[in-house]
Amino acid sequence: MYLNKRGKAPNQAHVGIPEGLYEDEHGRDGFAGPVSHLYRTHPPTGWVQIDGALKPRAFVCTQVSITTTPSAATTPTLMMQSRDVRLYVRSSMETMAHFVRNADGDEVYFVHQGTGAFETDYGTLSYEPGDYVVIPKGTTYRTHVDAGPSLFLIVETPERILMPDRGPLGQHALFDKGVLVAPELGLVESAADQGLEWEVHIKRQGETTRVVYPFYPMDVVGWKGDLWVAKLNVRDFRPVTSPRYHLPPSVHATFQAGGCLISTFAPRPLESDPEALHVPFYHRNTDYDEVLFYHQGDFFSRAGIRPGMLTLHPQGIHHGPQPQAVQASKGKTHTSEVAVMIESKTPFTVRPEMEAAEIVDYALSWSR
């Protein structure tokens, strides 16, 4: 359809919104398809009651493993899943006694807490808070914990993890592939013991096969190729910004796997144009369920958010800043937040066990 316009609406989206009106973006294909902007007299999140499957939800991930899975030190806790992606949280206090291998899909570990190392087929890779560690499907590995607890958000995708096409921005935008860190070969000191048996637990279709070796399975002495375990820290992520226009969240896309998108919100300068919107605009997540994991900083688009929390906003229900955040943003020049967004083309189903870590009144917080 062709561009049309009716009533009281500015010519430029996200800029010069008339006083007392609220911009609501109605679009398709995330933020890349056809779109219109509706200018309302009330915030579209100003509801007083929500009943049904589309109710926004929030969870405290630091409580999940304590309240739901006593053995979470070695077994991740499944929080929610769709056909495109599964989300887990894992809390570890000590080094894993056995190795694991995921035959169901690629994994992206995001490190929220702790330091240590991933010991893999490709060598050893240290980790610290703010690290993404991408582990290809079929890789054998285990984690060593230096200073616990270590808390990981784990994204599992049946499709291969790729870097999105940057289009006109070029392949070096957001981060250059040169900043990716590869593992270093070499046995860890604890592996020097001979005569021990070692277990590898292989996951396939949610079931585990246990394989026992009479030798240390991390015996690779060399490798070459373009499929390997890689690490990216959020401090090496360079957000794309515009001084006169609030860019959509899609410009922060970090990884992609089929219908799953993983994006990074890192500290960045805000728009300097006094008429430009500073906070995320209201939208209804059409075509994608949206999950946000809050890692650190001041989450300026709304109050009540703490590091280690995770929110779910299903497609079809509105999402945006708290009204008071719009006013508060006008005096700010930078963001200080670090958050990870996971979007799914197909709807998420939340596991019943997550209710123990849920913030019950979160859905009503948008109108406060």
Rank of each mutant, 00 (worst) to 15 (best):
V179Y: 01
F348D: 06
V179G: 10
S250R: 15
R284N: 13
F215L: 04
L151Q: 04
A182T: 06
T157M: 02
T254P: 07
R6L: 14
G7T: 08
R142S: 06
Y127M: 12
D289A: 12
Q324P: 10
E207R: 15
N285W: 08
K203N: 07
P214D: 15
V181P: 04
E275V: 08
D226L: 08
D24I: 13
G167V: 02
Y2S: 15
G30A: 12
G316T: 04
E159I: 00
K332T: 10
Y245W: 05
T157P: 15
G195N: 04
L169A: 15
V211F: 13
Y39H: 09
V111R: 04
V212W: 14
G30C: 00
V134Q: 15
I161K: 12
L292S: 07
H246E: 01
A73R: 01
P164S: 09
I305F: 10
V35G: 03
L21V: 00
P321K: 00
A363M: 07
Q327W: 06
P56D: 00
A97N: 14
Q49R: 15
E156H: 05
T157D: 02
K177I: 03
H42F: 13
E271D: 04
P248R: 03
I305S: 06
S272G: 00
E207I: 04
K5L: 13
V133T: 12
I66N: 15
H319N: 02
P44T: 00
Q322F: 06
W228A: 06
T45G: 10
M79L: 08
K8N: 11
E355F: 09
R238C: 07
V234G: 10
F348V: 10
Q63G: 13
A276K: 01
D219A: 03
D29P: 05
P347K: 02
V240G: 02
L196A: 03
D287Q: 12
M1R: 11
L54C: 09
E184A: 13
R204F: 15
S126K: 01
C260T: 12
V251M: 05
S82I: 04
L364S: 04
V291G: 03
E184F: 11
V15L: 01
K332R: 01
S36D: 13
L174M: 11
G30S: 06
V360A: 15
S65P: 11
L21N: 09
G222F: 04
P314C: 07
M218S: 03
V85P: 00
P248A: 03
C260R: 10
W47C: 02
V212T: 13
D226G: 07
R90F: 03
H112A: 07
R160G: 12
L196P: 08
P18M: 00
P323E: 03
Q315V: 07
Q49A: 12
P269W: 01
